[in-house]
Design a protein around this nucleic acid. Structure first.
Length: 407
DNA sequence: CCGCCGCTAAACATCC
DNA sequence: TGGATGTTTAGCGGCG
């Protein structure tokens, strides 16, 4: 279908309300199901201010969006994961290595830079469709949230806020957002029992197990050259960005693991994420590994294929639209056993059956420091894309200062 | 040409 | 009852 540009403008102005709600949400998250929110909530709000005033005045206007986004991201990452040390982060390595920042930016896809309010006509770019998939938009929105979880309404708000394009787009995009939330395995619904803002809907968080995949997707989508950072051809990668594989653990995100969750490197669910582009079209590397550990179903390279069950052949198509979902296996270790069993003899159209009950998605969201590193990297990617350097510097400095402060 | 991926639209159900 | 939310299905276009 053609771009939604031609359609009638969206009618409502939800952005303001959503923002307010988001603010309110913070409390809800912290009070309720999102322990991690405590650690992440406070500092976020400030980033906006800094984004507005800290950096070069000339670039403010055009960079505001990304500044905001990146600073928040970076702050969140930094705070979210105490273990996330800037020094080891690829994000900082990128800078430290003196990588061609500008070249990276320039090498980014034109659409990306334009969308991000690149140096050019940022105004126009804001009106153009973001180069991010809905999944990534949602991901960014959620990651930016203090509690790493948002209700759909706030997701709408975030998207509207950062991508004004959607404000003039028909409401169909909201449907797409919900559609993605529902269908993407990357996103999980969190029952928000406490502090419900309006009593409607649930919170959505990023499935920590898919987070690395999303990050990879983010990197890929934003600037293909980002791969260079993942797999530096010559220089040895930093500890946190292995050349070809990322070692990730089963992240524990905000809901359960909490920031204090100790990293257990010996955990069996530690996974190897291949950064090979061909291996994770759907950012499914992690699930793949996980699947393989649980069932023999997932040797496929793409999530969509493994999604519909290792045995289910070409109905992967369904999965394709959302990209990420890969069978509910990803997290339901035990449930899986109960459900499909190791044989994975689940019939292809298992979705419908799951739809009514507790679907594959469970109210579960965890985060891990390692992932924070990845997130930082992703944020760095975004920064590169936007050509935002000062922002990164600010974040870097703040991160350093935090680190020092911790010492 | 084919398969995968992402997007859009729509229908339907549920909840408040 | 209406709106928001959530799920599912179907189809289309782009891309490799």
């Amino acid at each position: 279908m053609g771009p939604i540009i031609g359609m009638s403008p969206d009618k409502k102005a939800e952005t303001p309300g959503a923002q307010e709600e988001r603010a309110g949400l913070r409390g809800a998250c912290g009070a309720g199901t999102l322990p991690e929110a405590e650690s992440a909530s406070s500092p976020l709000a400030t980033s906006l201010d800094r984004a507005g005033g800290a950096d070069g005045a000339a670039e403010d206007e055009e960079l505001t969006n990304l500044n905001w986004l990146h600073e928040n991201l970076l702050q969140n990452f930094t705070l979210g994961g105490p273990e996330a040390h800037p020094s080891g982060s690829p994000l900082f390595d990128i800078e430290g290595d003196g990588l061609p920042f500008s070249s990276v930016s320039s090498s980014a896809s034109p659409s990306s830079s334009s969308l991000l309010g690149g140096r050019g006509g940022e105004k126009d770019s804001l009106k153009s469709k973001p180069p991010f998939s809905f999944s990534l938009l949602i991901y960014m929105a959620i990651e930016q949230s203090p509690g790493k979880s948002l209700p759909v309404k706030d997701i709408y708000g975030w998207i509207l806020e950062h991508f004004p394009y959607f404000s003039s787009a028909p409401t169909g995009w909201k449907n797409s957002v919900r559609h993605n939330l529902s269908l993407n395995k990357c996103f999980r619904k969190v029952e928000r029992n406490l502090g419900k803002a309006n009593g409607k809907g649930s919170l959505w968080c990023v499935d920590p197990e898919y987070r690395p995949n999303l990050i990879q997707a983010l990197k890929k989508q934003h600037f293909p050259t980002a791969h260079a950072f993942c797999t530096p051809p010559a220089s040895p990668p930093s500890a946190s960005s292995p050349p070809r594989h990322l070692v990730l653990q089963d992240q524990s995100c905000s809901l359960k693991g909490g920031p204090d969750s100790p990293m257990d490197l010996s955990r069996p669910d530690a996974v190897l994420v291949s950064s090979d582009p061909k291996q994770d079209h759907n950012y499914s590397s992690v699930p793949v590994q996980r699947c393989s550990s649980r069932s023999s179903s997932s040797s496929s390279s793409s999530l969509s294929s493994l999604d519909e069950g290792g045995g289910a052949p070409p109905q992967a198509r369904r999965a394709g639209s959302e990209g990420f979902h890969s069978d509910e296996d990803s997290d339901l270790g035990e449930e899986r056993g109960a459900l499909g069993g190791p044989g994975h003899a689940k019939p292809a159209p298992h979705r419908p059956t799951l739809a009514k009950g507790p679907p594959g998605k469970k109210a579960r969201c965890e985060t891990r420091p390692e992932v924070d590193e990845e997130l930082k990297e992703a944020a760095g990617s975004l920064l590169h894309l936007a050509g935002i350097r000062t922002c990164l510097d600010v974040s870097k400095n703040s991160a350093k200062s935090k680190k020092l402060g911790r010492k």
